Amino acid sequence: MSAASQYDLATNPMTVFWLIKTTPEWLQLPPHGDGGRFAFGKGVLNPILAKYPGARMAFFDCEAFTADCTDVMIWTVTDLEHYNGVVNDLRETKFWSSFFTIEKIIPAIENEYAKHYKADLLGAA
C-alpha cells in the first residue's frame, strides 16, 4: 500500500469509536410505539445515516459489561465530509445530549503503525 493510499479513506477507511451513555430522558421513552425509541431511530436517525453513505455506523450495547458507557457506535468513514455531516445533523436532534451523552470519540486507522513502517500487518492471516 502506497503512502498516498494509506491515507485515502476511500481505500483505507478510518474507524471512529463513540463511547456514549443513555440519559434518563431516553430511558423514559417506551421502546415501541409512536414517540418511542425505535420510532426515533427509524424517523430521525435512519434518514440522517442514509444522507451520508460515506459514514456507516454499527451500534453495540455494552451496559451489562462496563460502567464507562452504555453503548458503542463504530463508524466506518470513507468520506470526512459525510462524517462531519452526520455529526452536525445529529447535533441538531435530541440524540445529542438529550437522549445520549457522548463520553469519548476515538478516531483510528487500522494497522496504521505496521503500514507506516511497511511491516507485516498485525493480526493478518
Rank of each mutant, 00 (worst) to 15 (best):
F65S: 15
F100M: 09
T93S: 02
L80E: 10
E63Q: 15
D68C: 02
V77Y: 04
E81F: 12
P107F: 08
T93K: 09
T78I: 10
D79E: 13
T93R: 08
S98M: 07
S97Y: 14
D68T: 14
C62W: 06
S98E: 13
D68S: 07
F100H: 04
S98Q: 04
V87W: 04
D89Y: 07
C69D: 08
S98Y: 02
E103G: 08
E63F: 09
I106Q: 08
V87H: 11
C69T: 00
I105S: 04
I106F: 11
I102N: 00
T66D: 06
E92Y: 04
T76R: 09
T78S: 13
I102V: 04
F65M: 15
C62R: 08
D68F: 12
S97G: 06
T76E: 06
D71C: 09
E81W: 12
V77R: 02
D61K: 11
I105V: 15
V87F: 04
S98L: 11
V87Q: 01
F100P: 02
E92H: 14
D61T: 14
V87L: 07
D71E: 02
A64N: 09
L80V: 12
T70Q: 01
C69K: 04
T101Q: 03
K94H: 12
C62L: 10
I106S: 00
F100C: 05
T93H: 10
E92F: 04
T70E: 03
C69M: 04
F59A: 05
I105A: 01
D68G: 09
L80T: 14
R91M: 15
N88S: 03
D61Q: 15
F65L: 14
